[in-house]
């Protein structure tokens, strides 16, 4: 009787599955810059965005982050200008903690505007229920 050669696809399936699991776990971290923990305000009306953008995060303690990288206020203006120069229509999202003063958020909006950003948004979370 002739021996039939069979390709064992079990390891292939295992590797494929592993890759899928790894992709699921890493994709949100790679694709978004929302990893700095901030308690953003909750709203009923909110628009979902699915585009790569510039995220400015302001924590309750007053720490500033640009795309999850800590930054100080003077550096922010320069770096933001560079980023906006690359893509003038990019979306600048301000992720501020709900407990900060609104004045501080306005300062960030002004910096974004001065840097040349034309599309600015404030990050919120949709209320459940």
């Amino acid at each position: 009787m002739k021996n039939k050669a069979v390709i064992d696809i079990l390891p292939l399936a295992c590797v494929g599955l592993l890759l899928v699991v790894m992709m699921i776990m890493t994709a949100p971290m790679v694709m978004s810059h929302n990893n700095t923990p901030v308690n953003v305000p909750q709203t009923n009306t909110a628009e979902r965005k699915v585009e790569e953008d510039i995220i400015i995060t302001l924590t309750k303690e007053g720490a500033l982050y640009l795309n999850d990288q800590p930054i100080n206020r003077s550096e922010l203006e320069e770096k933001l200008e560079d980023l906006v120069d690359r893509d003038q229509y990019c979306l600048v999202v301000v992720r501020a903690d709900k407990d900060v003063f609104h004045k501080e958020v306005l300062d960030l909006l002004a910096i974004a505007k001065q840097a040349g950003a034309t599309r600015i948004a404030c990050a919120t979370k949709k209320k459940k229920g």
Binding site: L17, V20, N34, V40, E47, I120, C122, K125
Partner: peptide, 25 residues
């Protein structure tokens, strides 16, 4: 299962992103 995970991943991906309100100054 792998296919279901991929589909689940594709469906759930938009929810990872935060939502927001556009404002103009």
């Amino acid at each position: 299962i792998a296919l279901a995970l991929v589909i689940g991943f594709i469906v759930a991906l938009p929810f990872f992103f935060e939502t927001g309100i556009f404002v103009s100054q």
